[in-house]
Simulated assay, not measured.
Amino acid sequence: METKLQTNQNIEMKSKKEDSVRTLLNIIGFLIFGGLALTMITNPPHSTKEMKEFLFFIMGSTFIYYILVNVYFLGELWRKVVYTTLFIIGGMSIFIIFYLSTSSIPH
């Protein structure tokens, strides 16, 4: 008699709930950043320099948002990367608040 050996295969199954949450977050991001882009029509900036800066802000924020949302759903290790990135962004924001409140801005 000969035994048949089967290898152990690790298969990760994505639940429908994860896919629906991912889709929901992508739709929410589209609405948020689409709404920001629409404000250029409803309340136009005063100069082309302001318009360029606002567009760069929207594009940068959109890029960071979608990268973090989609990397989050890659696996457990990537979730830790997303949490660490959010922690760093939050820490930098708090540092910038204190820096700008204590330093004078020449006009």
Results as ranks from 00 to 15, higher is better:
residue 5 L to F: 14
residue 26 N to H: 01
residue 46 H to G: 15
residue 6 Q to C: 13
residue 5 L to R: 07
residue 85 T to D: 06
residue 89 I to W: 01
residue 93 S to K: 09
residue 26 N to L: 13
residue 63 F to L: 09
residue 57 F to D: 10
residue 7 T to A: 06
residue 11 I to W: 08
residue 95 F to R: 00
residue 76 E to P: 05
residue 17 K to F: 12
residue 36 L to I: 13
residue 19 D to I: 12
residue 56 F to R: 09
residue 65 Y to W: 12
residue 27 I to M: 02
residue 92 M to E: 07
residue 17 K to Q: 14
residue 49 K to R: 10
residue 80 K to G: 11
residue 94 I to Y: 09
residue 90 G to D: 03
residue 25 L to Q: 06
residue 53 E to C: 00
residue 62 T to W: 03
residue 40 M to A: 04
residue 10 N to W: 03
residue 32 I to V: 15
residue 10 N to D: 15
residue 17 K to E: 13
residue 17 K to N: 05
residue 90 G to A: 14
residue 23 T to Y: 03
residue 30 F to H: 00
residue 42 T to Q: 00
residue 24 L to Q: 13
residue 3 T to Y: 13
residue 89 I to R: 09
residue 84 T to V: 10
residue 76 E to Y: 10
residue 9 Q to C: 01
residue 70 N to E: 05
residue 88 I to Y: 08
residue 6 Q to N: 14
residue 101 S to C: 03
residue 10 N to R: 14
residue 98 F to N: 12
residue 97 I to C: 08
residue 6 Q to R: 14
residue 3 T to A: 11
residue 53 E to A: 09
residue 13 M to V: 09
residue 91 G to T: 13
residue 94 I to T: 12
residue 18 E to V: 11
residue 74 L to I: 07
residue 59 M to T: 07
residue 72 Y to W: 14
residue 92 M to V: 08
residue 107 H to T: 08
residue 6 Q to G: 07
residue 27 I to Q: 05
residue 51 M to W: 01
residue 85 T to P: 02
residue 56 F to E: 05
residue 28 I to Y: 02
residue 81 V to M: 01
residue 6 Q to A: 14
residue 39 T to P: 03
residue 93 S to V: 09
residue 33 F to W: 10
residue 25 L to S: 08
residue 18 E to T: 12
residue 86 L to T: 07
residue 8 N to D: 14
residue 68 L to W: 00
residue 21 V to G: 00
residue 61 S to N: 10
residue 75 G to D: 11
residue 82 V to D: 01
residue 37 A to Y: 12
residue 68 L to D: 04
residue 67 I to K: 01
residue 89 I to E: 02
residue 55 L to V: 05
residue 33 F to I: 09
residue 102 T to W: 04
residue 104 S to Y: 10
residue 24 L to S: 14
residue 56 F to Y: 04
residue 19 D to P: 00
residue 9 Q to W: 06
residue 50 E to Y: 03
residue 52 K to V: 14
residue 26 N to S: 09
residue 100 L to G: 06
residue 66 Y to I: 12
residue 28 I to A: 07
residue 68 L to V: 02
residue 92 M to G: 08
residue 88 I to G: 11
residue 10 N to H: 11
residue 29 G to Y: 08
residue 38 L to A: 08
residue 46 H to F: 06
residue 56 F to D: 02
residue 12 E to Y: 07
residue 45 P to K: 00
residue 92 M to W: 03
residue 94 I to M: 13
residue 49 K to M: 06
residue 53 E to G: 00
residue 3 T to D: 11
residue 66 Y to P: 00
residue 30 F to T: 02
residue 32 I to M: 05
residue 61 S to C: 07
residue 86 L to N: 13
residue 76 E to G: 10
residue 88 I to N: 09
residue 103 S to V: 11
residue 61 S to E: 09
residue 36 L to M: 15
residue 98 F to A: 12
residue 3 T to I: 15
residue 25 L to A: 09
residue 88 I to C: 11
residue 40 M to T: 01
residue 69 V to H: 05
residue 73 F to D: 02
residue 1 M to I: 13
residue 67 I to P: 01
residue 104 S to L: 06
residue 91 G to C: 10
residue 44 P to E: 05
residue 92 M to Q: 03
residue 5 L to H: 13
residue 7 T to P: 01
residue 79 R to P: 08
residue 81 V to W: 01
residue 102 T to S: 04
residue 61 S to I: 04
residue 42 T to E: 02
residue 29 G to S: 10
residue 57 F to L: 14
residue 39 T to V: 12
residue 14 K to V: 13
residue 35 G to W: 01
residue 52 K to T: 12
residue 107 H to V: 13
residue 76 E to S: 12
